[in-house]
Simulated scan of single mutants.
Amino acid sequence: MENYTFNSLTLQLEGLNVSKGYLYPAFLFILFSYLFIIVANVGIVVLVFIDKNLQQPMYLLLCNLPFNDILGNSILVPRLLIDILRPPSERLISYPECVLQAFTTHMFGTTCHTVLIIMAFDRYVAICNPLRYASIMTNKMVIKLTVSAWGVAFVMVGILLGLTIRLNRCRTMIESPYCDNAGLFKLSCESVFINNVYGLTFTVVLFTFSIGSMVITYSKITVVCLTSKSQSLNSKALKTCSTHLVVYLIMIFSGMSIIALHRFPQYSDYRKLSTVLFHIVPGSLNPIVYGVQSKEIRRFFSNLFRSKKVFALK
């Protein structure tokens, strides 16, 4: 075996297979999607911190989602845009950068689940224990939930990547549009049995806990709404929970699509596309869903645009 192929610090990304006719349309679609993700999500975070009416536990927990979307897409998309315009032979990436990209990618996916879980807990307390909401969802509790969501994801992904970087590498081709854990451990000629076992366990535990939490939470909320005669409570539950549920379903459908397509090697190009859309679609739709459904966010933008019109008329 040649020395340059053994633990090489320079890897090659396969990238997206885009025909010449769709090269620039694909580039522009991803570019404008990325710009929208950054502007919309930064806008929501800034909005929550400058508007005192939005400094509530629900919106403070919500800020975790746009922050995760910004972080996950900023590490992945700029590099992807550059590689789209490069010929395949020039899509090179250093091993440390590849590990960082893989870590960020898996943190993005895992944190989507953990953040939506703590947001579901907030909705459960607000609807099922409204009188105790203020005493339970204190600023201290919001901080604890946020640290837990990011901390659990960090530990789980850290172990996932830690098991991979211990392996020696004898290949250099990452068969994916960007670096991920599977692409990295497939570079090794050693046994990856432990990696496969932990990866499968990781996925099963995450999805089981995530889906299980949603089922239990929304079952209890539904029971409370059905037994309650308060129209205001039911209206509040419908508005806040439907938003949260739509965001969760978008995320779970995107993730399940990738897992399903892994079972069909003949659709590898579709799988690669779905891995890119997993970052772009939720990141683009989340601010739209919350912006449309949130009365406070709509009111803020309405007042902002109204004041601009008045200023322009003057």
Rank of each mutant, 00 (worst) to 15 (best):
L47S: 11
V115A: 15
S219E: 07
V99Q: 10
Q101R: 08
L285N: 08
I75D: 04
M141F: 10
T201P: 02
V204K: 01
V197C: 06
Q266W: 15
V46P: 08
S191T: 05
L76W: 00
V18H: 11
K229D: 11
L23V: 03
M251E: 10
A134F: 12
I143Y: 11
H262M: 13
G199N: 04
K314R: 10
R263V: 01
F103Y: 14
I70L: 08
F193H: 12
L304F: 06
L313T: 09
F185R: 01
T243E: 05
K239D: 11
L28Y: 07
V246L: 11
N139R: 12
Y290Q: 11
S254F: 02
I174D: 01
Q12C: 06
Q293R: 14
F264W: 12
A102N: 03
S242I: 10
R132A: 13
T111P: 00
D122A: 14
C128N: 03
I117Y: 03
G43F: 02
L160G: 11
L23G: 04
L131I: 02
Y34R: 04
R132I: 01
L163V: 06
I259P: 05
G43W: 06
I50P: 07
T222S: 15
N234R: 14
D122L: 04
T217E: 07
Q293H: 13
V18Q: 01
N7Y: 02
R132N: 12
M251V: 11
S176G: 08
A120G: 09
L65W: 07
S210F: 12
C63S: 14
T203Q: 14
I216V: 09
V204L: 08
K295V: 13
E90P: 03
D269I: 02
M58E: 13
S268D: 12
S213A: 13
Q55E: 15
N168G: 08
Y22H: 04
L245P: 04
S89C: 13
I159G: 07
L238E: 11
L71I: 06
G43E: 03
V45Q: 12
T222Q: 14
P130H: 10
N53T: 06
V223S: 15
N129D: 15
L80C: 02
P287K: 09
Q293D: 09
G15L: 03
A182W: 05
L245D: 08
Y290W: 12
H244P: 07
L76A: 09
L145R: 10
I174Q: 04
K236W: 12
T203Y: 06
F27C: 02
R271K: 12
V152E: 05
P78V: 01
N73E: 00
G21T: 11
N181T: 13
N7F: 02
I288K: 08
S19A: 15
L131F: 11
K314A: 08
R169A: 05
G291W: 06
R166G: 05
G15Y: 05
A312D: 07
G199R: 03
N41I: 01
Y34E: 00
L187G: 00
R169S: 00
Y59M: 11
H262N: 13
S94F: 14
L206A: 15
V247K: 04
G43Y: 08
S94R: 11
Y218T: 02
K239P: 09
V157Y: 02
V77I: 13
S191C: 07
V292D: 01
